[in-house]
Write a protein that binds this DNA or RNA. Structure first.
Lengths: 154, 154
DNA sequence: GTCATTGCAAATACTTTGCAAATCA
DNA sequence: TGATTTGCAAAGTATTTGCAATGAC
């Protein structure tokens, strides 16, 4: 486990990453702005909010001619997540999706297409969240609205 | 894929399985009441609402001296799920949990212990669920309240 | 007896890890 | 230069599948 250092100065929730100053952002997160981290950050944050799997980001990196291995993709995604630049979402017990929007919001999960998209406008409100079990505190509340296409019924 | 037949007469949501009539329940779901299906159904439904992983059920079966293979555990869990006797929950992108309560309710997920428990009383209400994307219908809304112990902070 | 079901072992999908080579400050 | 990071290949974990043997009716 010599990879994946816990960054000291982790960013706080809801940070928005500009398409510039990536270098500074990485440094602020305690991560050296290396070629692959810069390139991956660019891919992740340049296009607005996204939900990517490791494999998808790997493909995009290949398409963009960014030299990077799948192992590095995984390491980087986790480093970014630990740094608060990404958020991991568990919708599908098969792969992990990483969300570039770390703010408070919820998701649609499109069954069949295995795709995650944001619920717009943060419309959803969850009421009456119960007391967590004894000695526990709530770390996050996730709402997943699973949808399927009206045709092509599974 | 000669295993895992889609049962014809799938049970409707919210069915409660009594500790008896397992045989009839299985038949009703289009599944032959075989030794292992009966035994697994017994393990699953006799003790009230539970959230089990395949591996956990496998252990329980071994402890109960039920002769069954892990492959059959997986097949059976999926057959029961397709039949509406179980519900699969994705909380942790690592393993799938199966819930014996198929009714409308939500979950706590205890980080660290990797354990799923029901939110009591169906207290949670989700408001303002937005329109699904075009040509899509909502199949389910899942709320996961992630909790962690106050001590032992991760 | 026939067809569904089971179990094994091999295969698959995703993710992690050890370690040597390359890179960054 | 010295510490971090990368990449490869191997390992690991959860799950699925092919197919011969077994079991249900």
């Amino acid at each position: 486990m010599e990879d994946r250092p816990k960054p000291a100065g982790a960013a706080t929730d809801g940070v928005r990453i500009g398409s510039t100053d990536l270098s500074a952002t990485l440094r602020g997160a305690g991560l050296r702005p290396t070629r692959q981290r810069m390139a991956l950050a660019e891919l992740l944050f340049a296009k607005g909010d996204r939900h990517v799997s490791a494999e998808r980001l790997y493909e995009e990196a290949r398409e963009a001619k960014v030299p990077v291995s799948l192992a590095t993709i995984y390491n980087t995604l986790h480093q970014f997540t630990d740094a608060g630049l990404l958020r991991a979402i568990a919708v599908d017990s098969a792969r992990t999706y990483f969300d570039t929007n770390t703010g408070d919001h919820h998701h649609f999960f499109i069954e069949g297409k295995e795709e995650v998209i944001d619920v717009p406008d943060d419309a959803i409100k969850v009421e009456n969240i119960p007391q967590p079990p004894d000695g526990m505190e709530i770390s996050r509340v996730d709402v997943i609205v699973r949808v399927r296409s009206l045709t092509n019924s599974s």
